[in-house]
Design a binder for these strands. Sequence first.
DNA 1: GGGACTAAGTTCACGTCTTGTAAGAAGTCT
DNA 2: AGACTTCTTACAAGACGTGAACTTAGTCCC
Lengths: 406, 406
Amino acid sequence: MDGRRTTVRDMRRSNRSVLLTSIYRDGPLSRFELGHRTSLSAASVSNLVGELLDEGVVEEAGSVESDGGRPRVLLRVAPAFGYVAGAEVGETRVRVELFDLAMNVLATKVYPIETPKPAPALAVKYVLAGLAEVLAEANISSDRVIGLGVAVAGIVEGPADAVVHAQTLGWDAVPFGAMLAAETEIPIQVDNGANTLGQAEMWFGAGRGATDAVVALVGSGVGAALVTGGSSYRGIRSSAGEWGHTTIVYGGRGCRCGAEGCLEAYVGAEGVLDRYRLAGGEVTPGDEEAAFTGLLDAVGTSEVAAKVVEDTIGYLGAGFANLVNLFNPEKIVLGGWSGLLLGERYLPQLREAVGRHALRQPYAQVSLELCELGRDAVAMGAATLPVLRLLRDGGNPPLPAESAAR
Amino acid sequence: MDGRRTTVRDMRRSNRSVLLTSIYRDGPLSRFELGHRTSLSAASVSNLVGELLDEGVVEEAGSVESDGGRPRVLLRVAPAFGYVAGAEVGETRVRVELFDLAMNVLATKVYPIETPKPAPALAVKYVLAGLAEVLAEANISSDRVIGLGVAVAGIVEGPADAVVHAQTLGWDAVPFGAMLAAETEIPIQVDNGANTLGQAEMWFGAGRGATDAVVALVGSGVGAALVTGGSSYRGIRSSAGEWGHTTIVYGGRGCRCGAEGCLEAYVGAEGVLDRYRLAGGEVTPGDEEAAFTGLLDAVGTSEVAAKVVEDTIGYLGAGFANLVNLFNPEKIVLGGWSGLLLGERYLPQLREAVGRHALRQPYAQVSLELCELGRDAVAMGAATLPVLRLLRDGGNPPLPAESAAR
DNA sequence: GGGACTAAGTTCACGTCTTGTAAGAAGTCT
DNA sequence: AGACTTCTTACAAGACGTGAACTTAGTCCC
């Protein structure tokens, strides 16, 4: 398969990466601690940290008291070494946010989208305008931006041109990444919104500490981000994780994807409300969210509502169980607006439903939790993509005058 | 997460590994070719190959004619550098095979198991006896055996003690790996049978060349081996891939796992025949295989049989589609005895059924094929485990006097 | 307030590794 | 014989991690 040699340079890059990642993830650390954690010698730590300090990637952050010895100097990634931007391109809005490296929000800009199927060019325009605006607001020049991560509500193919297929946006094979890259110098990374939200949860939310997890998003649509071995799984062409369109009721309800019996048709908010309606329930007028809350509130008084909710929990539990049996994850994190509404009230019942459908062994090893971050974290998750790349590369190593492959 | 340093030794090991893997996988190669493929310099290739030659891991294998120059000397992994053994512990038999490094079978020994639920100790006894026997038959001393891979029909937890849970064998939390390791010096690796067969298909069968694939096994039971990024995916505690027990008909037929609507209950041979029986079909007497063949043969004359087979194809297609949507694999390989019987006659229909349930995008990227190796490849797949380890470590590098971690 | 004591961080010589480059050896073809 | 190509060997250069010695920066005790 891979025929890649290792050179002495890879070694240094790898060690820089390990060191930098450790500093970033495990808060301020002393050189001593770093040596311990990475099992690098004190000499190497000193050497590499010195380099990272010189480049400004990390900075000293006070020292820790000692009981009779030289105090340890704490190190952290310099929040102002660079900035990252995250954008969310959804059906109803484009949201752009600017962060420092510590992922503090510096500025936010939201553009509502009125037209139901926005042209890709419009989305590009909004993203770039938003980027310019948040930079202006935070008074940061664009050359200090390490990268821009963009989350799109659809399938994103390959990192190359980031070709996007999004039924809800009406996009078919749109080279969204290339379109953005043509207009700006800033490195672009495009990914699925479910994946970026999952990324955010893994770093800063309920997924912290897990290496193999699934972040399931249940809203009007249904998706999942699969995290394996600490990094997001993408499949051969980056379109893995379409959990919402796995068959759970063979020959069942029609789904907007054209197939029958998809999980989304049963547990997506739209599907749930539709089932409620068909069962004779009175759907609260207003938007989908109001209707869904109305359904949940009616459980105590309406048998129909109770039945629909109970069934939903069952379907969702079976859907989770499928993930548990297939992936054997450490953790399942439930998010998405309707998923959260449901999870807040029925988490124990959901856990129990998973147990009914999953195999004993993997079920005993998984924990089911709720997302801790709101849907606004989609943009933040997108912004972590450039950070991830920075950590992987160990900062911006000097002497980049090297061809990638020959 | 991982806080692992890289040293100059790792570099060498890594390069040895790349080189050795390349020689192993891509047949006999000249040093020149090797340098090209691995992008290592000729000097390094010569250096490393010289070392590998001295250690006996690789050997020269003739030379290729030249058109006016020194002929290239071909190199291959020395088949007789060491030997690997593979064992299959199934419900009805224990099968032990001995291979050289080129995976030529040197000897085979099969022990039928009469008792329905064999005690783990008995399986250990058979495996070790079989190992001794095949070694004697091939006249090879046990210290030349690099490792023994064992495939078990059940969930295998973690590489540590290899705790096995196998309902069909009646095993619950059996530390099978530890039990074997206690009785022999040879390194033991235990894995699920579906995984080892998948491994064999990926290396020598229909999966050649793919990096992201699923090997689906459909027999009396149903399982799958997930291969991601060139290596088998195992989940947090090695029990991933239980595809047979994912829900495909919510609230449907009871499954022997205790849940309802599992894929296995619909497309496993037992489930298919049961459905045939319930639909009023006349099941051919004899064993399951005869009955299943009888069902397929009756399709032309019996409407009931035709319907059952058609449904089976539908269910299986939906099951595949779930994998396609979740994993976005490059290839799906169908195996298992009943899966092959079905696939040989209805591959186009199966492909079409997958298309009906899968999303367009990932479906367009996947190909569906049949296993090329028989079920006897389970033991061979198990035997590849030690080979894989050998390749990963780049042979047995000198100076092993180094602690693994500190 | 001064002198131990202690622990963190730094410097430097050393060994290991890949990589050029160059020169030579080993074959084969014209 | 001469041309040509593939390996091998040798050697210097460059990059890296490491261990041991060394420096630095505090605390503590008298």
